[in-house]
Design a protein around this nucleic acid. Structure first.
Lengths: 209, 209
DNA sequence: CGCATATCTTGTCAACGGTAAGATATGCTT
DNA sequence: AAGCATATCTTACCGTTGACAAGATATGCG
């Protein structure tokens, strides 16, 4: 375990990934230092190289972990609306993973593990979109639905994280995300009356049909 | 002009910003090196410090320039649809500026010039949204429209740039953006034939819901 | 013409990423 | 249980970077 102090760390790979997430949340991915991670983990500055090769290697592992975490987070929501909220929630709460995942310059985005993990999270979104009743002005069909849903949710999350939104957006990203998603899909999306009266104040974990 | 070779460069500040944009387009903002910029501009490694102070200072200037360029680009489109397309086009063609603008960890996003420039581009978007006929499921009113429009366009642009979209999205970001935007606003947005040929300059007559 | 100032240079330092070579623990084979 | 191959970690080093200090040179204003 991590308690094994001595020449061998015991779980250095995990410890480095966790330290990387913390460090990135503190100062962003650009300021990440492998030597700082090594210090946080209590090992020498050359230890990370054995597990990840180089900095892009470490961030590649973090991206893979992120895509898998995202896929898992999305699966908790049963409706497309809740899945979108879960996407935004993931972006806000796991800032480090999210930022790296969508910064392909920082890691090897074409590595097979990354492609596979990204495909898994994409499949979850697809399955939810497929359950959506067809809409009136469906220009691009289900693929268009998926693209639009992904775009609006990703854009909202990114802008929120970047602090680029005006204050009117409020302070609860989950609630604001609900409003935006409902504006895209209207009554096609679950669990809220189509007229879209002010959103329900309490979060309702169960979604009555 | 830039031709003034000698002890003084003549237009070093501009030259450095331009070189930064090129370098970032090549390798991303994380790999940016002030010394490399100095080499490209033909000056010593300490020259940039006089104009920008430090690296965040240079990126702050680049972000301000980017927000102003964005505001100008948005103003070319008269309809909200075309403005959205212009947003995506800006993100794809001026990758460097766009990436920096929405990476607040890289620069001083709270600097007054940045806040002002960002406000200017936001005002352009607002004015276009205000012209939009009210929609049926207007949850958040015009502010909700603006938030949704900005989110979907920003998300699409970001995902496109990150290469995170499946191949079905096609290879023309402007066309794909049109489809996505139309899915959000439906008939409320200027009408365009499904092929997405250039939109009519005049705003469409009132669109029946 | 002379001086204040803006601009650029050279020199220096600590920190970083990456590599090489050596030390130590782990686990497999017999 | 012993020995050896291998995984893991350390120490040492190199070139590059960002930042700072101090000096050199050009520009503009009186």
């Amino acid at each position: 375990m991590t308690g094994a102090r001595g020449y061998h760390h015991g779980d250095l790979r995990r410890a480095l990934l966790a330290a990387a997430a913390v460090a990135i949340e503190e100062s962003g991915p650009a300021a990440l230092s492998l030597r700082d991670l090594a210090r946080r983990a209590g090992v020498s500055h050359a230890a990370p190289a054995h597990h990840f090769g180089d900095k892009p290697g470490l961030l590649t592992a973090l991206a893979v972990e992120g895509f898998d975490l995202l896929a898992a987070a999305l699966q908790t929501g049963d409706s497309l609306l809740e899945m979108g909220v879960a996407y935004v929630d993931f972006a806000v709460r796991r800032r480090a993973h999210f930022e790296v995942m969508y910064s392909p310059d920082l890691y090897r985005a074409d590595a097979p593990e990354v492609v596979a993990a990204r495909g898994r999270s994409r499949a979850v979104l697809r399955s939810a979109v497929a359950d959506l009743p067809p809409g009136p002005g469906a220009v691009g069909g289900a693929a268009g639905d998926a693209l639009a849903a992904w775009s609006i949710v990703h854009g909202f999350a990114t802008l929120w994280k970047a602090g680029a939104l005006p204050d009117e957006a409020g302070d609860d990203p989950r609630e604001a995300a609900r409003v935006v998603i409902r504006r895209l899909f209207g009554s096609r999306v679950a669990d809220v009356d189509a007229r879209g009266q002010a959103a329900p104040p309490a979060r309702s974990p169960r979604t009555p049909a």
